[in-house]
């Protein structure tokens, strides 16, 4: 196990962070809003943490204090929340693909700004972001609670009045409006909470990958997040979590398989060089064979029933 952890500590934490980010996209989608703004807030959070930890606090020997990381995460959450409201109020009048495009435009504008500011370091970005932990796997002590908190929040939300209002908005906005659900309020709420989550993940990620630059949190990230949510399943919060975990691991799992001895040379070579061909095909096949995502509410119910049966039988 230690050898496995040493080799895959970074990947494991990446998977958890991807799952949290996927939830940040899932929340607005609960209300039927396809927003690809999460990468923008993720980038913002990362810059906030990188700037605070390298420029505000002078570098010191030893590990960077964890409370300061928590502080950065809090600052990132607040900043992302404020920006979320500012962007969300006008943008959320848009629907469907138009909202998606407006949020893509937002992400792209942020990227160009970060390329041009001095404080963000242009294309080179900010490097030498200090480490709060001696080992990568210790990032789990922040990533796991973050994931659990977000999952609990999503689970409670799905069962709450607000959650039902969001789902009502997704199913039929006009009807929901007629039933007294205030669409703008709930949509902005879901969008803003998603933005805050993305900002927090960004802040943690800047430490986690040692550096931050304008290549983090771009349109490509947004597209990946969308794949996490839709392949995982967009009708329950478990879907995006599973999607984020599985799809982040997949390219590296293919690399791992290639390294296993005993495969014919050409196959190992193809697994290595053609890793992304296989990845792309698997995504396409995933949508064909799991049109509602890997995880659906019906599947969860079946699993839940199965467990109850077993408990009763025992």
């Amino acid at each position: 196990m230690p050898a496995f952890l040493a080799a895959y500590d970074f990947l494991l934490v990446s998977m958890v962070l991807a799952a949290v980010l996927a939830l940040s996209l899932y929340l607005p989608l609960m209300a039927g809003q396809l927003s690809l703004a999460s990468p923008g807030f993720y980038a913002l959070g990362g810059y906030i943490a990188a700037i605070i930890s390298t420029k505000v606090f002078p570098p010191a020997a030893g590990l960077y204090p964890v409370p300061l990381v928590l502080l950065e995460m809090a600052v990132a959450a607040v900043a992302s929340g404020v920006l979320g409201v500012i962007v969300g109020v006008p943008a959320l009048r848009l629907r469907g693909i138009f909202l998606a495009l407006a949020t893509i435009a937002f992400v792209e504008i942020l990227r160009v700004i970060s390329l041009n500011l001095d404080v963000t370091g242009g294309a080179i970005g900010i490097f030498g972001v200090p480490q709060p932990f001696a080992s990568q796997i210790h990032y789990m002590s922040l990533a796991i609670p973050l994931l659990v908190l977000c999952m609990l929040f999503a689970a409670r939300l799905e069962r709450s009045r607000t959650g039902r209002a969001l789902v009502a908005l997704r199913e039929d906005e006009l009807a929901a409006d007629a039933m007294g659900v205030n669409p703008t309020r709930y949509k902005v709420l879901a969008f803003t909470v998603g933005a805050m989550i993305a900002g927090v993940v960004g802040a943690l990620s800047a430490h986690f990958i040692n550096t931050w630059n304008s290549r983090q949190g771009t349109f490509d990230t947004g597209v990946s997040l969308m794949a996490f949510v839709l392949i995982g399943g967009s009708r329950t919060f478990v879907g995006p979590v599973v999607g984020g975990l599985v799809l982040t691991a997949l390219p590296e799992a293919l690399r791992g398989i290639a390294d296993v001895g005993g495969l014919p040379g050409w196959l190992a070579q193809f697994l290595r060089d053609g890793r992304l061909i296989i990845f792309g095909v698997m995504i396409a096949l995933g949508t064909v064979f799991f049109p509602h995502g890997l995880i659906t509410p019906a599947l969860l119910e079946r699993l839940g029933r199965g467990r109850r049966h077993r408990v009763e039988a025992a």
Binding site: Y8, F10, L11, S14, Q216, E252, D259
Partner: peptide
């Protein structure tokens, strides 16, 4: 960046 780190760890 992430793929570079994964490659390094491997």
């Amino acid at each position: 960046e992430a793929t570079a780190i994964n490659a390094y760890q491997n």
